[in-house]
Design a protein around this nucleic acid. Structure first.
Length: 492
RNA sequence: GGCGCCGUACCCAAGUGGUAAGGGAGCAGUCUGCAAAACUGCGAUGCAGCGGUUCGAACCCGCUCGGCGCCUCCA
C-alpha cells in the first residue's frame, strides 16, 4: 500500500483514491516563455515516476499537466522579441516536448492550456464574485482572502504573519495585501478576452483551478508541483476552488524539492541554472549525456529533499548505470548450465518485494535503486555459477519491468556496441534506441574495423600495435573489453 | 519579523527508537599478454556540537553552531 507525504497534513499518509483503482492527478506544468532547466526536469520526472508507479500498481491514472500560456513574462518576452505571444508559447511548448521527450518523460493524459479555458476561468470567477469571495475594481477582479477562513491551511501560514512580511508595494485598491487577481483588465497590446468585467485576461492562479476542475472534476486525488508553488500558488488554488465549489479540492498535495547549485536554489534570478538542452548538448565527455543518465541522477535522491547538480554527480550516475548495462550484456552471452537458476528465482522475488515496499514508502527511489543494485550484484555472482538462457532472459525482463517505473533499463544496448567476434564474422544489427544521440566521434563500423585489426595483431602477438589501437580508441572515449574466448566487446 | 528545511564515511545518499543500506571514487587480491569487466576483502565504535528522556537514540526533547528555502515571479 502506497504511503505518500501530504503537504496539507504534514504527514505521510496511506494513499486512498476516491474511486477504487483509479487515480486522478494534476501537476502544475511550466510557464512557456523560456527553455526548461533541470529544476523543471526534476519536477516533471518526479511526477512521471509517481504516475508510472501508480500504473505499475494497477491504478488507472488520469494525469493532467498544464501549460501556462498567458502571463506577464510571456507578454514581456513577446515584446522583447517583437513577435506575438502565440509565437512565444508555441516555440517553448515545442521545446518542452523535445526536452522532456529526451528525458523519457511520458506525455500526460491531458496537457491543457490556459488560453483554451477562458470560459471556465470566467465562470469560476463569476461564482466567486457571486459568493462574495471576490470583488471587482476597475475591471480587475480580486479574491478576498479574509473572506476565506481556511486561507493558509496548506502553507501553514496565518494571514497576520503574511501581512507582516509583505515586502511588495501593495496595490491600494486591494482590501488586503494578500488579495490576488483572478482577472486583470488588459492594457493595449496584451492578449485579451471579453468578460463581464470588460476586456482582460486571467490571473495566474485561477487557470489551474479551472483546468483541473474541467478535466478531473471538483474533487480529485493528487495535486503536485515544486515546493515553491506551495505558497502562494497552491494556497490560492485551494481558496478559489473550494470557495467556488464548496467542496474539497485535491486530497493529496505532493511537492518536490529543488535542484541546487552549490547548495543554492537554481533559479532564473540567480542566473545559476542549466537548461536541459544545455546539459544534453554541452557534455564534456566524448559521448552524450543520455536521458537515462539524467534520470538515474535525479532519482538517486529522495524527491522531497534538495538535490545538488554537478558534473561529478552526473559522472557517478553514469558509472553506476554502466554497471547495469555491463550485466545486461553478460546476460546476452550464451550458457549451457542452469546451476543457479533456482537461486535466481529467490533473488528476483526478493528484489521485487523490496522494490515495491520502498516505493510504497513515499516513493523512496534511492532505496529502490539500492534494491536494483543488490539484484545486480547477486545476478553477477550467480552468472559465475551458471544461469540458463531462459533464466537470463527472465532476470533481464525483471530489470526491464521494475526499471520501467523509473524509465531505466529499457534500451536494447544503451551505449554499448555489438560484440566484435574474431575476424570474418558479421556484426550483429544494432537495434539500440538511445534516448539521446550525439553522432560525433567514430562510427560503429570504424570502431569495428579497428578492433578487427587489433584482434589480428593480438593473434600475431603484436601487442604493441594492439595497445596502440586500444589507446587511440580510449582517447575517443571508446572502452574495449577482451573476453576469455578471444572476442572483444566495446562501449562508449 | 513569521513559517519551514537541512547537517550521516573522500564524494553522493538511504535509514525517524533496537545497535549504520546502496552507489561513486580509492586500496589490496583472484583472473588476464596488457587492460577492462566480474568476484573477494578493506573502509564511519560513529551519524554538526553539547545536554536530557530511555534498558537502548543518527532517529524523541532542549540549547548551540553551520548551511539553505518560502513569505515577490519561480519546478
Amino acid at each position: 500500500m502506497l504511503k505518500i507525504y501530504n503537504t496539507l497534513t504534514g504527514k505521510k499518509e496511506p494513499f486512498e483514491p476516491i474511486a477504487p483503482k483509479t487515480v486522478r492527478m494534476y501537476v502544475c506544468g511550466v510557464t512557456v516563455y523560456d527553455y526548461c532547466h533541470i529544476g523543471h526536469a526534476r519536477s516533471a520526472l518526479v511526477f512521471d515516476v509517481l504516475r508510472r508507479y501508480l500504473e505499475y500498481s494497477n491504478y488507472a491514472v488520469t494525469f493532467v499537466k498544464n501549460f501556462t500560456d498567458v502571463d506577464d513574462k510571456i507578454i514581456k518576452r513577446a515584446h522583447e522579441q517583437g513577435v506575438s505571444c502565440d509565437a512565444v508559447t508555441a516555440k517553448y511548448i515545442q521545446a518542452y516536448h523535445e526536452d522532456m521527450g529526451k528525458l523519457g518523460i511520458q506525455a500526460a493524459t491531458e496537457e491543457p492550456k490556459a488560453t483554451e479555458h477562458i470560459a471556465d476561468i470566467i465562470h469560476l470567477t463569476e461564482q466567486l464574485v457571486k459568493k462574495g469571495l471576490a470583488y471587482v475594481v476597475d475591471g480587475d477582479v480580486y479574491f478576498e482572502v479574509s473572506k476565506y477562513p481556511e486561507y493558509g491551511r496548506l502553507s501553514k501560514r496565518r494571514l497576520e504573519d503574511l501581512q507582516a512580511g509583505a515586502r511588495v508595494d501593495v496595490d491600494e485598491r486591494k482590501r488586503h495585501a494578500m488579495d490576488f487577481a483572478l482577472w486583470k483588465s488588459s492594457k493595449p497590446g496584451e492578449p485579451t478576452w471579453e468578460s463581464p468585467w470588460g476586456p482582460g485576461r486571467p490571473g495566474w492562479h485561477i487557470e489551474c483551478s479551472a483546468m483541473s476542475i474541467r478535466h478531473l472534476g471538483e474533487t480529485f486525488d493528487i495535486h503536485g508541483g515544486g515546493m515553491d508553488l506551495i505558497f502562494p500558488h497552491h494556497e490560492n488554488e485551494i481558496a478559489q476552488s473550494c470557495g467556488s465549489t464548496g467542496k474539497e479540492f485535491a486530497r493529496y498535495w505532493v511537492h518536490n524539492g529543488f535542484v541546487q547549485i552549490n547548495k543554492e536554489k537554481m533559479s532564473k534570478s540567480l542566473g545559476n541554472f542549466f537548461t536541459i538542452r544545455e546539459i544534453f548538448e554541452k557534455s564534456e565527455w566524448p559521448e552524450d549525456v543520455t536521458g537515462e543518465i539524467l534520470r538515474y541522477f535525479l532519482l538517486s535522491t529522495h524527491y522531497h529533499g534538495p538535490l545538488d547538480f554537478s558534473d561529478q554527480a552526473l559522472k557517478e550516475a553514469k558509472s553506476a548505470l554502466n554497471g547495469f548495462y555491463d550485466l545486461f550484456q553478460r546476460l546476452d552471452e550464451p550458457e549451457e548450465r542452469a546451476t543457479a537458476d533456482q537461486k535466481l528465482r529467490e533473488v528476483i522475488e526478493r528484489c521485487r518485494v523490496t522494490f515495491q515496499s520502498t516505493m510504497d514508502d513515499d516513493l523512496n527511489t534511492p532505496e529502490a535503486v539500492a534494491a536494483l543494485q543488490g539484484m545486480k550484484a547477486n545476478v553477477n555472482k550467480l552468472l559465475g555459477q551458471g544461469l540458463s538462457m531462459p533464466a537470463r532472459k527472465r532476470v533481464r525482463e525483471e530489470f526491464r519491468s521494475l526499471g520501467e517505473n523509473f524509465g531505466l533499463f529499457q534500451l536494447g544496448k544503451w551505449q554499448f556496441g555489438p560484440f566484435v567476434v574474431p575476424i570474418g564474422q558479421a556484426k550483429e544489427t544494432d537495434d539500440a534506441m538511445p534516448i539521446s544521440v550525439k553522432t560525433s566521434g567514430l562510427a560503429d563500423t570504424e570502431i569495428e574495423d579497428l578492433l578487427r585489426e587489433r584482434n589480428e595483431s593480438r593473434r600475431r602477438k603484436d601487442f604493441q600495435r594492439a595497445d596502440e589501437i586500444r589507446k587511440s580508441l580510449a582517447s575517443q572515449g571508446i572502452i574495449i573489453e577482451d573476453k576469455p574466448d578471444g572476442t572483444t566487446r566495446w562501449k562508449r
